[in-house]
């Protein structure tokens, strides 16, 4: 069981990192990462929805008939998204305003529906919750990193704190749409490089069997 939890944690945060490995949930990744704070807020909101929806869907997995499962999942997800939205509007109005429409668009974030479909609907509640947690953390950390990079370079600040004079050095390009694509593309590449290096090392040390599957997955991705 310990092993399984470790697997889930590794899968969610690294091996199947939704942002850099699976390239899912790209819309918020590109749109809200102009500042680190927004990214963190978005990541936590997604994590919350992911955990809740995974738990509920896992609980109801034997009740929901197969043919209406997608609408059911969507309704459940939408409910939690609405709750997050209400919560943010009531207690963190600044974040609510800066995330704007992307808060509602968590509903159609492929990560959530993807996890519901591929994990929560076949697995027990506990593991589903953990899967949601780690997938969400993977997403949160990834987009926060991206937010930090874009905020540092684009507006010379970090989590809203001015670090140096933006007029002296800043590249406003990074706060633009094009800058988002550039940052994301390069981060995927860097993540791939690191991942492959570490992967090769582990394989070398352990002749790791299980990582083979991930390797094939990666090649499949690249082929695509």
């Amino acid at each position: 069981m310990k092993n399984r939890i470790r697997e889930i944690a590794l899968d969610g945060t690294i091996r199947q990192n939704p942002t850099f490995r699976l390239v899912l949930g790209t819309c918020p990744t590109l749109a809200v990462t102009t500042t680190a704070f927004n990214s963190l807020g978005m990541g936590l909101a997604v994590t919350f929805v992911l955990i809740c929806s995974n738990v509920i869907i896992s609980l109801l997995r034997n009740v929901i008939p197969d043919r209406v499962r997608i609408p059911c999942f969507i309704v459940i997800i939408a409910t939690f998204v609405t709750i997050v939205r209400m919560f943010m509007e009531a207690y963190i109005p600044d974040l609510y305003e800066s995330l704007g429409v992307f808060l509602s668009l968590i509903v159609v974030n492929c990560i959530i529906l993807g996890r519901a479909e591929s994990y929560a609907s076949h697995n027990p509640v506990g593991y589903s919750a953990l899967d949601g947690l780690f997938m969400g953390l993977g997403f949160t950390v990834s987009i926060t990193v991206m937010g930090i990079i874009r905020e540092l370079l684009g507006s010379a600040s970090l989590f809203g704190l001015k670090l140096w004079d933006a007029n002296a050095f800043s590249i406003p390009f990074f706060t633009n749409a094009a800058g988002a694509f550039l940052t994301y593309g390069l981060l995927i590449a860097i993540f791939n490089v690191c991942y492959n290096a570490v992967d090769r090392k582990i394989k070398h040390n352990q002749h790791g069997k299980m990582l083979q599957s991930v390797e094939t997955q990666t090649t499949a991705k690249e082929a695509e």
């Binding site: 109801l60 009740v63 929901i64 008939p65 043919r67 209406v68 609408p71 059911c72 309704v75 459940i76 939408a78 409910t79 609405t82 709750i83």
Partner: peptide, 17 residues
């Protein structure tokens, strides 16, 4: 039955909201 489940889920979610 499928429709009933969907409707029930919708209603519960609506009430929760």
């Amino acid at each position: 039955k499928a429709i009933a489940v969907l409707v029930v889920i919708c209603l519960v979610c609506g009430a929760l909201l």
